[in-house]
């Protein structure tokens, strides 16, 4: 998204147009909406982790394998990864530009995608195949 490094004068002048208005608004909204969802996720996370910390597989299957717990948790986890990617984009935009920024952004996408895919597959395995 960010092609060049912005000068202080460009930022200070309200008449310069920089950045993508639509993408930035979408970014803001996604971060706020996913943030609300993440409060729910943290509730699930604390329940699941404190209930299952150190327990064996049978116990994990019983709790996370319960579709009413596992499936919402999987959906919430995917929303968390969107929030992660979006938040990391904010950081990358501050420190990198051009091709370096694109490279880091690709790594960011791959990492968050991996978290989502491995997390969801693991939960689905526990829910549907035990």
């Amino acid at each position: 998204m960010r092609e060049q490094i912005l000068s202080k004068a460009a930022i200070a002048n309200p008449k310069t147009k920089y950045g993508d208005a639509k993408a930035s608004t979408r970014h803001f909204l996604l971060q706020r909406l996913s943030g609300i969802s993440n409060v729910l996720f943290l509730g699930f996370l604390i329940f699941i982790v404190t209930r299952l910390a150190g327990e064996d597989r049978a116990e994990m299957v019983e709790v996370i394998g319960n579709a009413w717990i596992g499936l919402p948790f999987a959906v919430l986890l995917v929303i968390v990864t969107l929030h992660m990617r979006n938040g990391m984009r904010d950081i990358l935009e501050d420190y990198f530009a051009g091709r370096t920024y694109s490279l880091y952004m690709t790594l960011n996408t791959m990492w968050t995608l991996a978290i989502a895919v491995i997390g969801v597959f693991s939960i689905l395995k526990l829910v549907f195949w035990g």
């Binding site: 996370l45 994990m60 299957v61 990864t81 978290i115 997390g119 693991s122 395995k125």
Partner: peptide
């Protein structure tokens, strides 16, 4: 938290 999420996923993957 970005890094910590890998701890959760590692635990879930191990259980699966």
């Amino acid at each position: 938290n970005y890094a910590g999420s890998s701890l959760l996923v590692l635990w879930l993957a191990a259980a699966a």
